[in-house]
Simulated scan of single mutants.
Amino acid sequence: MTEQWQILASLVDWLNRSNGTGDHEIAIRVMKVGEEFGEAVAAYVGMTGQNPRKGVTHSVEDVAGELVDVAVTALVALHSFTDDPQAVFEAKLARIADRATAAEESP
């Protein structure tokens, strides 16, 4: 297990101790991914100044940080659905990479 997966596992353990592992908590962890996605979108809107009332309110670093929050939140939630989240993630990533390679090779 890599250091990142160990850190994720410790975050999951902390959440489990703090909030439990019931169905409601698992649902909240999935919903939290959506909340974090919304924050990433808001940061992008703020970076581009698309709200004329607010102007530019965020930086590219803010957007990057929010995207990391989305990824970490999703990986934390993944722990609730498998005993081996690293293997599930790596297998899915490999399938995505294979599809991308196949699409690139198609005429």
Rank of each mutant, 00 (worst) to 15 (best):
Q86K: 04
I7K: 09
S80M: 04
T21E: 15
N16D: 15
G22P: 04
I7Q: 08
E25T: 15
A43R: 01
V60H: 13
T2Q: 02
M1I: 06
I26W: 01
L75C: 05
T48Q: 13
A74Y: 02
G38W: 10
A40H: 13
T57K: 07
H79G: 02
A40M: 15
E61R: 11
A40P: 15
A27I: 01
D23T: 14
D98S: 13
A43V: 06
V12H: 04
V60W: 15
A64H: 10
A43Q: 10
L93A: 11
E66R: 02
V63M: 07
Y44I: 03
M47D: 11
T2Y: 00
R29S: 04
D23I: 14
T21I: 11
G49K: 03
D69N: 06
A77H: 04
S18F: 08
A87K: 06
A100K: 06
K32A: 13
I96C: 06
V56H: 07
L15V: 02
I28K: 05
A94S: 02
V41C: 13
V70F: 07
D62N: 15
Y44V: 05
R17W: 07
M1S: 05
M31R: 09
W14E: 07
P85M: 03
H24G: 05
G22K: 03
I28E: 06
E3W: 08
A87Y: 00
Y44W: 08
E105W: 07
A64P: 05
I96Y: 11
R17T: 11
Q6S: 12
D23A: 15
G49R: 04
A87G: 03
V60S: 14
Q6M: 08
M31L: 14
L78Q: 04
V68K: 02
N51G: 01
A102Y: 02
V72K: 00
R17Y: 05
M31C: 11
S59W: 02
D69H: 01
V45Y: 07
V76N: 01
V70H: 04
R17M: 12
T101C: 08
E66S: 03
Y44C: 08
A71R: 05
I26Y: 00
P107K: 08
G34I: 04
V33A: 07
L67V: 09
E105D: 06
G65S: 09
V45A: 10
V63P: 05
S80W: 04
N51H: 05
P52E: 01
T57D: 08
L15M: 12
P52Q: 00
F81Y: 13
G55K: 10
R95E: 15
N19F: 15
P107F: 06
E104M: 10
A103G: 02
H24N: 09
K92L: 13
E66F: 03
P85A: 04
T57E: 09
V56W: 01
L8H: 04
G46S: 12
E66W: 03
Q4A: 12
R17Q: 14
E105A: 13
A97H: 09
R53N: 12
F89Y: 08
A27E: 14
V88R: 14
L93S: 09
D84H: 11
A9S: 06
I26T: 13
E35P: 00
V88K: 13
L11M: 11
E105T: 03
A71Y: 03
E105Q: 11
D69L: 01
